[in-house]
Computed example of a mutant assay.
Amino acid sequence: MKHHERLTEADYEALANLRYSIRRFRKFSASEADKLGLQPQQHQALLAIKGLSRGEQMTARLLSERLLIARHSAEELLQQLIDEGYVDAGTPTSGHTKDVIHLARRAEDALDLLASAHLFEIRKMAPELMQALRVLQDREKMQSIAWMI
C-alpha cells in the first residue's frame, strides 16, 4: 500500500459501487459463456488470444501473463481448448521456440456471440461505471492540486 489516506463517504460509496458493478459484469460474463458450454476462464483465454495486438503471437507463457495465472495453469487451459476444438497449436515462427496458439473457427464463432452480448452489457453499465470512476478520479485530482498549492 503506497498511501494511507482518509476516505470520504463518497469514496467508499464509489468504491463499493465500482466493485459491485464489476461483480455483476463477471457474473453476467460467466453466465453467457456457460450458455455456449465454455468456462469463464476459457472465454477469457479465447478473448486474450483474439485481442492480441497485431504482430504478436500467443504462447502459453504470454497467455499466463495476460490471464494472471501460473504458466502450468495456462498450459492446462490451452490443452483443454485444443481438446475441445477451440484452438490449434501451430508451428513456431519468427524464432519462437514455443507453440503459437491460433483460434479455430469454433472459437471465432463463440467469440462473435459473446463479444456482442458483452459489448451490449458494458454499454448498459457504462453510466454507473463512469460515475463511480469520476468520483474516484476527482478525489485524485483534488489531492494532486493540494500538493501544488
Rank of each mutant, 00 (worst) to 15 (best):
R26L: 13
R26D: 11
R26A: 08
R26Y: 11
K27F: 15
F28S: 12
S29C: 02
A30S: 14
S31E: 14
A33E: 09
L36V: 12
P40L: 13
P40N: 12
P40D: 07
Q41E: 06
Q41R: 12
H43E: 11
H43P: 00
Q44K: 12
A45Y: 01
A45I: 00
A45R: 01
A45C: 02
L47E: 14
L47I: 09
A48L: 02
I49N: 00
K50N: 07
K50I: 00
K50C: 02
G51Q: 09
G51H: 05
S53W: 10
G55Y: 15
G55D: 11
G55A: 11
Q57P: 02
M58L: 04
T59C: 00
T59Q: 02
R61S: 05
L63W: 02
L63H: 02
E65L: 11
L67F: 14
L67T: 12
L67Q: 08
L68S: 10
I69C: 13
A70Y: 09
H72P: 01
H72C: 01
H72T: 06
H72R: 08
E75L: 03
L78C: 08
L78M: 07
Q79I: 04
Q80A: 01
Q80S: 02
Q80I: 00
D83N: 12
D83V: 06
G85T: 03
G85S: 03
Y86S: 10
T91C: 01
T91R: 13
P92A: 15
T93E: 14
S94D: 04
G95W: 13
G95E: 09
G95C: 06
H96A: 05
H96N: 09
T97S: 05
K98M: 03
K98A: 04
K98P: 00
K98S: 08
D99T: 10
V100G: 01
V100W: 03
V100P: 00
V100Q: 10
V100Y: 06
H102W: 15
H102Y: 12
H102P: 00
H102L: 11
A104P: 00
A104C: 03
R105I: 13
A107C: 08
A107K: 08
E108M: 10
D109E: 07
D109L: 10
D109R: 14
A110Y: 10
L113S: 13
L113W: 12
L114Q: 10
L114D: 11
L114T: 08
L114G: 10
S116G: 07
S116A: 15
A117Q: 09
H118M: 12
L119R: 14
E121I: 06
E121W: 15
E121S: 06
E121L: 12
I122D: 01
R123D: 05
M125R: 15
M125A: 14
M125Q: 15
A126W: 10
A126C: 03
P127I: 05
E128V: 05
L129E: 10
M130Y: 07
Q131H: 14
Q131S: 04
R134V: 03
R134P: 00
Q137D: 13
Q137N: 09
Q137W: 15
D138I: 10
D138Q: 08
E140H: 13
